[in-house]
Design a protein around this nucleic acid. Sequence first.
DNA 1: ACGATCACGC
DNA 2: TCCGAACGTGATCGTT
Length: 524
Amino acid sequence: HSADYFDFAGCADKEAAVKLLQEAFDNGLIEKVTYDAKRALHLLTPLGIKLEALHDDVLLQAYLLDGERGNYDLLELGCSYLNSSLMADRENALAQAADITLQLCDQLNPRMSEMQVDKVYRDIELPIVPVLYDIERAGFLVDTKVLAELSVVMDAEITRLTQAIYQLAGREFNVGSPAQLGDIFEELNFEVSKRTTTGKISTSRDVLDELAEKYELPRLIIEHRELAKLKGTYVDAFPSLVNAQTGRIHTTLNQTIAATGRLSSTDPNLQNIPIRTEMGRRIRRAFIPADGCVLLSADYSQIELRLLAHVTQDPVMLESFKHNEDIHERTARAVFKARTPEELKEKRRVAKIVNFGIAYVIGPFGLAQRTGLSRHEAKKVIEDYYATYKGVKKFMDELPQQARDAGDIVRSIYGRMRRLPDLSNRNGQLRARAEREAVNMPMQGSASDIVKLAMLHVDAALKREKLHAKMILQVHDELVFEVPRDEVERTGTVVKEAMEQAIKIDVPLLVEIGLGDNWMSAKP
DNA sequence: ACGATCACGC
DNA sequence: TCCGAACGTGATCGTT
């Protein structure tokens, strides 16, 4: 095997060049090693060149060996993993890049086997590259007319709020500046205790919420911030991101960013489109299907809590999911002793917060803040929770030491690895953080394994069934498809089945399917 | 250019 | 005494 390079940009006869490249890339007998295969697909596909026999991607290899190194520049990787004598300059940068890529591949493959991340690499990360590429290329259709109208409405509302804020503040200032707002709070003699790490008065949401009980100004600031955020980040930003050729928005799905194996989305981030507030939902309604199509959203129900049951083997939680109970209701009854329907309704809300909080190893302080309970009550709730779900307690207690014994490493169920050197740090605060990250990894990491596996299975199933649905987005536990109207029913069945059977664990996986003429109404 | 702060999602 | 819930992206401010 050998590394070679070809200077396409500096090539006079592009047509002849493409033909040459095609012969090499199309040939399934010639195994290819890339640095960033998804980018290669973006370059090759528009030229009509297929990439066959993708054998390795050193970018993915480096990520799976160390998901937190942040810098995956090819030369940096070379410095880390190659003997410096092998980094000798070649005739030019292209030649050196090709050379380093192949050398890295030879170095990293044995390391992957050693660290047992070859399975997640071969079964998940490498095969999902073309699926991610297809999603990026497909794009999401956005109704820019809806956004334009929304922009006008929001602008008027922001102007109205700004004037009212000036009135209450007694003078004009930059409402968008936390520092200037802090000064105003001081001038008005608001009792503000909380400070930021740099010593300034905090104007964070929870401070505003507290002040809002007594004053009008913070209430208006909260409204202003919400609108300014939604308008600036989404409504006004999206129209310029519509691709002129396709008329659609094409995000980039980053495969080598998140420490837990999740994808991330940039330019724009389509994984944080609002849904909570009414204004937010109006933005979501601007995301629509193409003519003749419907949007289909498929959500894993409680995937992280199901994984909590699976990895902790907690008998109560396992049984609850096996009987397809509402886990929040179960918690409301078992932990909060809800008996009547009224009690159940009220306690379910808090139970839900606790259930999710557990996955992040929430403490009494955090739980109190999010539920309105006193710290004392919150402490009691957590104790009761662990008394009910004893397996969860045992897992939380034992996992950090297990991870230390494994060399400060935690893994997802598919073998994805996260290094947490701070598990052995003498600084208690850093160590506590690492312990929370350790406990969270089996859930969040395994969830991302499963969703990626599901994407592979769905992709294969749609092809096998000759369905024309296009996968157009992944949002951690949700897949979004654009589906021709006459195939909606069959597609729904195929998608649900492929996702629910993506992997066998000790609890059933449940997928909820929703259909709609926009992303909001498609949410189940 | 960069850190700090804030707010959106899961 | 301090912190206080995991993983992300990005806008804005204000300083360098």
